[in-house]
Computed example of a mutant assay.
Amino acid sequence: MDTDALLEQVLDGRSISRGEALALINGVKVGTKEMYLLMHAADSLTRMTFDNRGEVHAQIGVNIGPCPKNCGFCVFGERHGLAPKPVELSPEEVVKRARTAQKEGANAIYLMTTADYDIDRFLSTGREVRNAIDVKMPLVANIGDFNTEEANELVDAGFTAVYHVVRLREGVDTEVDPEERLRSIAAAKAAELDISYCVEPIGPEHSSEEIMESMFRGRDLGVAIQATMRRIPIAGTPLFGNGQISEIEQAKVTAVARLAMKDIYAMGVHEPNAPSLLSGANMIYAETGSNPRDIAEDTREGRGRSVAACKRMLQEAGFKTFDGPAPSLQGWLRE
């Protein structure tokens, strides 16, 4: 494959195929000239498409405790014995943190729960948050699977989007049915909720084919946001012994994922890292509350970055930041 010619065609507006994406993942080696050409092409595409705009999306982990889905990479898995006793933020505290994130300049607000969290309780808290923040601020649900009725209830409660993913080796490394994940995404789309998606959680054991298929599942689903996330190995979780990919390896995957997505409204990377912000990503996440990659009860005392820290990171990478609602998750499917 002529990498130079392919990347020139991408910058001229052509989407890459599955075969080309796979060839880039397999053929481009970290540290080579081709690697930096790949990074440059993805970075250029993002900066041109989004007018050099960077976004910070703030996530609030609403509860922490043992989860029956037992994902092999998550500290909440009840069989792993790592999750502390159940703790739940009050609706008032969630509202307070959402207001703080908005005041600090966040561009979207996410509410995250464990997979077994009660949907009615979540909807009630979501309504309170919706009433407390800018009416145009994207409000995103990161929850367990849901049906069509519940997707419509999310809309009625003021949510504009969901973060929902068929993760790498879903159903193998997790006790989650991948078909159920797809049904939830279909329900969200039917309710005209935007979809935030991610190739995750990437580890050294995942094949190029698995990674590529995850990228193109997002493209086939017509998601609003694509992202990549590397797995954070937590001692005591079943996948800890598999290790971790490097940030520069994640940057290569980020670049290919960006080139695979012709129509997209932001490209995320998690956890935030500088190489990926030079490889097509322009969106990163601030976190508070619970975090499936952190044994701290409140990740703002652990791994989680603040909105201000995320803005500085984007600025260091040469992106323009802004305060207020993101254009990337404001109901573009309804336009």
Rank of each mutant, 00 (worst) to 15 (best):
C198L: 05
I60H: 00
R334K: 05
E8T: 06
T49I: 08
G171I: 10
P91T: 04
R305Q: 09
A83M: 01
A309F: 14
R167W: 04
V253S: 11
I202T: 04
E210Q: 14
S90V: 06
Q244C: 11
A326C: 12
A188I: 02
F216T: 06
L111M: 14
T32S: 11
F73V: 02
A23N: 09
L7I: 07
S328F: 01
I16F: 00
H40Y: 13
R18A: 07
E335R: 09
M283H: 03
E200R: 14
D12Q: 15
Y117T: 05
F216L: 11
G158R: 00
F146V: 05
N63R: 00
G65T: 10
A191G: 09
G203E: 10
A227L: 10
L7V: 03
T288S: 15
T125D: 05
P86V: 09
E316R: 15
R99H: 02
V307A: 08
R258S: 12
V87S: 10
L193R: 00
I185A: 03
I232N: 04
V172T: 07
L111V: 11
S17E: 11
P84H: 12
L89G: 01
H164Y: 05
K85C: 05
P201M: 04
R258Y: 09
S15L: 05
E20C: 00
V166W: 01
S306I: 10
V10H: 00
M137G: 06
T3I: 15
D134W: 12
I109H: 02
G324T: 02
G144Y: 03
E209S: 15
D294W: 00
L24E: 07
R167H: 07
H57K: 01
G243P: 06
V253M: 06
V95L: 09
V166A: 01
K136C: 04
R181M: 07
A190S: 12
I245K: 03
V87H: 10
A106K: 13
E271Q: 11
S44H: 15
Y265F: 02
D323T: 09
T237R: 14
D220L: 11
E8K: 08
V172D: 10
I245G: 04
F159I: 01
S196V: 15
R258W: 05
T49W: 00
V129W: 09
R18T: 14
K320D: 09
K136N: 15
M313F: 15
L168I: 12
L168W: 01
H206A: 06
L139D: 08
E55G: 00
S306P: 06
S124L: 15
I185N: 01
I248A: 04
D134M: 13
M313K: 06
G304L: 14
K311W: 05
S279F: 11
V140A: 01
I234C: 13
I264W: 02
L89S: 00
G243I: 13
T288N: 10
D12G: 11
A191S: 12
T321W: 07
